[in-house]
């Protein structure tokens, strides 16, 4: 058989229209939409599981014997404060201080120690040398210095002390 004969037969067969099925297109699309929903069994299964659990819990609670509540007395010993032995209070003794260092006793102060030089000077100017204390005048001793050849030199007294203030130091009479 040639290809042309086959094509003629094919063309004739293709001209036959298949009988359309008695499908309700709208119903099919509706069912397809419902079938395309994902997880449609999730919530029904969840509700079913929770319902079963609830029923089981109710059965367990219902089947438990309900006895009268038993009253039990529990004696708790009273707390007694304990006597804690106290150690005697000992005052801590301070460490002995080290001995103070020996301080050389200064000589007793002279009667003039209470006078300042300025006061003595003022007193001498105002009332004269005689008014000065005696110790002051006695202390006016001339200084003697021995030279290298053995001669003693009297260099006078300390100014203002060896000699009474009979004249002013600046030369006025």
């Amino acid at each position: 058989m040639s290809e042309k004969e086959l094509s003629e037969l094919e063309r004739a067969l293709t001209g036959l229209q298949p009988k359309p099925p008695t499908l309700n297109r709208d119903d099919l699309l509706f069912r397809a939409g419902r079938a395309s929903v994902r997880g449609r069994w999730f919530w029904p299964l969840t509700a079913l599981c929770l319902g079963v659990v609830s029923v089981c819990l109710a059965v367990v609670l219902w089947s438990q014997p309900q006895d009268e509540p038993e009253i039990r007395y529990v004696y708790v010993p009273k707390a007694v404060p304990m006597q804690v032995p106290q150690a005697p209070f000992v005052v801590p003794q301070p460490a002995p201080w080290p001995d103070p260092p020996e301080i050389e006793q200064s000589p007793p102060p002279s009667p003039l120690s209470g006078y300042s030089n300025w006061r003595l000077q003022q007193q001498a100017i105002r009332f004269g040398v005689d008014s000065l204390p005696a110790t002051w005048t006695q202390a006016a001793q001339p200084l003697q210095v021995r030279t290298a050849d053995g001669a003693d030199l009297c260099v006078g007294s300390r100014p203002g002390l060896a000699e009474p203030l009979t004249r002013f130091p600046w030369g006025e009479q």
């Binding site: 004739a12 067969l13 293709t14 001209g15 036959l16 229209q17 298949p18 009988k19 359309p20």
Partner: peptide, 16 residues
């Protein structure tokens, strides 16, 4: 019936 009545083809549907 597999095919519609003869309209567009030279063949009869029942025969085919």
């Amino acid at each position: 019936d597999w095919f519609l009545p003869k309209e567009f083809s030279a063949l009869d549907g029942q025969t085919a």
